[in-house]
Structures are given as C-alpha cells and as structure tokens.
Computed example of a mutant assay.
Amino acid sequence: MFKIVHHISDIQPAVAGKKEIRFLTQPNGITLGCYLFSDSKTFDSIEALECRGIAFDGKGQIVSRPLHKFFNLGEKESLFPDRVLARDDIVAIFDKIDGSMIATARIDGKLAWRSRKSFDSAVVKLTANLLDSSQNAGIQTFAEEVASSGLTAIFELTHPQARIVVAPEAAALRLLHVRDNVTGAYVMLDPGHAIHDLIVRHRVPLVERFDGLSLAGALESLAEMNGREGFVVQFANGDMLKAKCPWYQRLHRSITFLRERDIAWLAIKEELDDVKGALAEAGIDLAAVNEVETRLKTMLGGMMDEVEALYQKGRDLDRKDFAIATRAHPLFGLAMQRYLGKEVTLLDWYGRTRLKNDFSLRVLANETLADAMDG
C-alpha cells in the first residue's frame, strides 16, 4: 500500500507536475514535502498521498513521516458506506480528535517536534510548553526513543489556546500512531511490535481505541453523537477513513456552503473534504464543486510560482536589497517569507485579500439540493 521511501528522490519526481505540492527547506535545513492546497486530482498516486508533511534532511534522507492523506466516508466511490460496510479487513476504530497533528523528527541526532508544515508553528510551541511539565516526561523520553529508531510518533494536541470546534477541558497530548519512516507501516497495528512495550513503559496516553465496536455500530452512533468529532477507521493495509458526526459538521456549517465563494473558502481552510463526503452521500454531482476547487488550485499554483521566481532571482541579495527589489510586487510579503525561510502563508493571504474578487456568490445548487442536505 505505502511507498518505500529512503530519499527525497523517491517522492519528489513523481509529484513534480503538481503545483499545489511544494518541497520547501526550513531554517533548520529540513525540507518538508506538503500540499498547500488540493483538488480532486491532487492525491492520485501513492507518492502524492505522502505529501502531507514528509520530511528530509540536508542530504535528502527521510527523517519524519506523519500520517498519509486519507479521506472522508463517502468522499470517494470506494468509501461509500455500503462498500465500506461490506469490507472484512477493518482492524481499528478510534476516536477522531478535534485537535492538531504533532509529530516527531530526528535532526542531527536530536529529537525535534513539528506540525504538518513547520517546526516553529504556534502548536509546536504549545507542545514544547506542555512537555516542560514533569508529568509529561514519559512522553518526551518515548518520543526520543521512537525518533532514534527510524520511526515517527504522531500525536494529537488538544489545547484551549488551539481550539478548532470542540472546546478541550485541558491541554493534552495523545499518541495516535507510530509510522516506520522507510516503509510507511503503522507499526501499532502489529500486536507483536516492540512499540507496545515502549508505550506501556513510559505511560504514554493514547487516542481512544474502540476494540469492541463494530463499524456498523460506530456509524449508527454518529447520528446521536455530541461534543466529539467522530471516528477514524483503519484497514489492514494501513489506509484509513474519517467519519464525522452531524453535530460536528453543523458546527462547521460545512454542508450549507453551496456558493462558489464558500466552496473556495472551504478549500482554503482544508474543510472541503467534509462537504464532498456529505454531498456524495446525498447523491449530488460534484462537478460544480470540483470546478471551483480546480480553478482555485490553478490560481494558487501560479502565485506560488511567482513567489518562487522572486526568491530565486534575489536569494543572493542581503535582506535590505531583497526588500527593495521586490517591494513593488503584489506578492512582496509572501516573497519575503520565502526569503527568510518561514512558512509561506499563501492561503491566509489569499483568503484575506483576493478570494472575494476571484470567486462570486453564484449559488452552485438549487432548493432541491438544499432540502436534500437538510434531510
């Protein structure tokens, strides 16, 4: 199922034609391969599925491999409920926590914490502060041992200062999975793997698994679920799907966004997969939604190309001269982020400054569709 990855060359050439996927070197010398935006054609290969924060050192060797890209129940034909319920290879059902992904990396022989796109994001700093507490010493030691073994520990951070929808009662860091950097295997699926002894020894808190729950039971319970996001279902080959409850989706207001501007906004916020799953399950043609998503991807890809061209042209200038040379360009702020080795916040900038001009309030569906979604 998963691509064997030793070196950046095992991934980068296969996705070179996708402008939405970028390989950007961080100030610490690590190159992160990550999609910045996506459409229905982005994740059409096993290499593309890994471009969700996969990390390589200065020599191109893999140092961190967080979760692969996976999809919502009903988002793809193979994930329609009737097809999933007919499968006999489901090996795990666990809580879908409304939090932020935090993972480990090994850099120059030392443990580093990272989010999907950064090693110094706000959630990484919150994680560092959380781990300063003596009660979390076991997590830190566990993470160091995992990283030194060629594995990546993947946690979910919930924190009052990083609320998404569900308000957490207190800050917490819970282990979701551990992946083999090279093979991509989710080693916790192997009951005989040494990782289980390590988890017990260091008393690492886990994302809740529902061992006695059937898939049918899990899906049925979604209708009455409140205060939680939903479930993640994992198959024997390591692939996964997300199933979110109506309560959570209503809070996101996802299935009510049917204008093209709202679809574009959801794509920028990385919430459009929720909409697609709900629309597909209702039997709605996704052609209009896909058209908006593809148009957005084309625009953003062109802007990223401009930013990269500005950076390459002035990369050898000192900071002052680079600023003078590029300050008249509309993308100056983003180019300066690239020059300084920071995360290029294209999506945030575009959402604030350009989206309303580029996408109209044209309604993508009629009252019949709205009634279907309300039902």
Results as ranks from 00 to 15, higher is better:
C34H: 03
D98R: 08
D98W: 15
D132H: 12
F119Q: 01
F43C: 01
A287C: 10
A92K: 13
A170M: 05
L173G: 07
L331V: 05
A323R: 14
G283C: 07
S214F: 08
G314M: 08
S40L: 09
T353E: 13
L296T: 00
G192W: 10
H329Y: 11
F94S: 10
S78V: 03
G74L: 04
K110I: 07
P27R: 13
I8G: 07
K356C: 07
K242A: 12
R261T: 06
L189Q: 11
D374H: 09
P66R: 01
A218L: 14
K269A: 09
D305T: 15
A170P: 00
L198T: 06
D39C: 05
A278T: 10
W265P: 01
I21W: 06
C51F: 00
S254Q: 09
M373P: 01
I268K: 01
R22T: 12
D318S: 14
L346F: 04
V182D: 02
E145D: 04
F210S: 09
P27Q: 09
R295H: 07
R253S: 12
H68V: 06
A194S: 14
N290D: 15
F71T: 02
I90H: 02
G150H: 03
L73F: 00
D274G: 11
V166M: 14
K276F: 07
V63H: 03
G212M: 07
T353S: 12
S121E: 13
I54Q: 05
W265L: 14
A223N: 13
A162D: 11
E271H: 15
